[in-house]
Design a protein around this nucleic acid. Structure first.
Lengths: 337, 337
DNA sequence: TTGAAAGCGCTAACAG
DNA sequence: CTGTTAGCGCTTTCAA
């Protein structure tokens, strides 16, 4: 049985193809009577228009792409929830692509987005991404982009971020208030604005208190958990072992706890820990984890809404601005007495 | 600047449209020379064929849909990783849809998949889904479906599951071996095969030891965490308080730990806990959590591979069979001494 | 208010 | 080996 088309509806009802088409675009130049007739038959036969024929003709796909480094991360998975919910609302479809932190992958993925596959792109860049030509290229070809969380700061389009710098500052200040004097900052990238800004905020808080914070206090981590455990273990073995750790991204949390267990360093007595994390297990860790929690759902939602609004009125291109949704410090036991 | 098309390449090179097209389908009836010429210009102009024109003509979209209850769940997010990796490999695109455990949503989503939007569907059903007509309808209309994890057992197509029954048995037996006699099973659905089978395995292990396991031992939970904490707290307040809990899905874990904290029940002394979970924080909970861990990546991968293989040879429809990938019991402190 | 016709960009016979 | 032609299913002038 071939898929049912407008042509078939038309023939069945002795109407012209264009009349039927106009019913579905809800044209006001169709009589109520024929409209009902067409809709009735369509419902009865369970007709669904071919989206690609329509895309081809109208030159828009009602589809967006979401490009992420990884989906096994609470921030990103909750952000997807936000994105999907507004997409569904507006009748858009969501293609998902994972870069796995690889710039080449990111490039390859974006290069497929010209030619109308998607009407727009929501992206959180990989940690290898230090140049944005693959992104500006795409924009030049008419595919609008909205960054969220991991943004390119120079690219002239809208960015949705959280207040990374203030959050870094807040985290450090919280640790200082708890009596810490030697804070280590775990980073995953030297280039990513989220890393740089969180670090900058941290540095600022320390220098405001005239506390030392040198190159040794910043520890670069990797994509591999076992390796990170070793890196952190070595950090804990230093003669001037830090009295606090700020984990700048969620996936470093487990490595910190495991390294502490391995090195028999007790949290929070010997080491206070704070993590940028959206994991809902933070509360049931032991000690429960003090976190900077990002508004993941809302960031996803805002990114999508911003994109859709701009798609609706194409005369209003995306402004080169950063929209900031603040994060929350949730104090728990890992930074306690 | 309009998007570049084959017609433009053809005109530029003084070739016919069909010749150019044949170059891109890598037809062997094109001379090496013209092939190179076309490819060179295409690369120079950064030509990417319009996927929807091609879909329309070829009646296949090189796109699949992944339909999930939720993405903020380690199992599903890792499964997406598996799916995406093979999709990328095979040149497929992945549309993602979330049902949020709502049957109506699931129906609405699937109903859009006729008319060629996708070549096939990977689905993990909602916990409201007790009937499969929306799914068989789709299959009848020529859209193949592969279930994974949360399957419909009667639907005649391929299912990828883990060994739920054996895992339930294994979990219960492990608790029995640890000395437990009064095990509570936390469920999220009476209909979902994963719930039913895990429960059946558990029941089997207990009855094999002639241990009682009645209706009271099965506790139905909800989609709301705060509510679940209350439900579990009440369970812990019972005069015949259980000495062990099996949480049948990952998202119940936090509620169990929180309820224990609230009711001052200590794990594992007063209550042993085992959870079906893929959370990588299981190891850093305190006490660390004994889990039944599912092969999420491989299940996603297998589901996708199965679908793609069947798409490639359309004469080989999907067999009505269940492919089982075993889970692993990872013993940690929560079921210890 | 309805219909005829052109065409979105591509593929696939079929001819040459 | 290359070109001509007829659509895929839909939208959109334009004419009736």
């Amino acid at each position: 049985m071939p898929n049912i088309s407008m042509k078939m509806l038309a023939k069945e009802l002795q109407l012209s193809l264009s009349t039927v088409s106009k019913v579905f675009t809800d044209s006001h130049e169709i009589s109520e009577q024929t409209k009902q007739k067409v809709l009735a038959l369509a419902k009865q036969l369970n007709y669904v228009p071919n989206p690609y024929a329509s895309s081809l003709r109208k030159r828009k796909s009602k589809t967006i792409a979401v490009v992420l480094p990884d989906v096994a991360d609470s921030f990103f998975s909750v952000a997807i929830n936000g994105i999907e919910s507004v997409a569904r609302d507006k009748g858009y479809h969501v293609l998902i692509y994972l870069t796995h932190e690889l710039l080449d992958r990111e490039r390859a993925i974006l290069s497929e987005f010209q030619s109308g596959r998607v009407d727009g792109v929501l992206i959180s860049i990989s940690n290898e991404t230090t140049t944005d030509c693959h992104i500006t290229d795409m924009m030049q070809r008419g595919v609008p982009v909205v960054f969220f969380d991991r943004v390119c700061e120079e690219t002239p389009t809208t960015r949705i971020t959280t207040n990374d710098r203030e959050s870094g500052q807040l985290a450090a200040q919280h640790l200082i208030d708890a009596g810490c004097r030697n804070i280590a900052f775990l980073s995953i990238s030297e280039s990513l604005p989220i890393s740089r800004n969180r670090l900058a905020g941290c540095r600022q808080a320390l220098s405001a208190q005239r506390l030392p914070f040198g190159a040794d206090n910043v520890v670069m981590c990797t994509d591999d958990e076992a390796e990170n455990v070793q890196i952190i273990a070595r950090l804990l073995q230093r003669p001037d072992r830090p009295d606090a750790i700020i984990a700048s991204v969620e996936k470093l949390t487990a490595a910190v706890y495991l390294a502490c267990k391995q090195e028999k360093v007790s949290i929070p007595d010997q080491l206070k820990v704070i993590s940028f994390s959206n994991q809902n297990t933070a509360a049931i860790l032991n000690p429960s984890l003090t976190t900077i929690t990002q508004p993941a759902f809302n960031m996803g939602k805002m990114a999508a809404e911003t994109l859709f609004t701009s798609l609706r009125k194409s005369h209003l291109p995306l402004k080169a601005e950063t929209l900031v949704v603040p994060s929350t410090l949730i104090v728990r036991e890992s930074t306690g007495k």
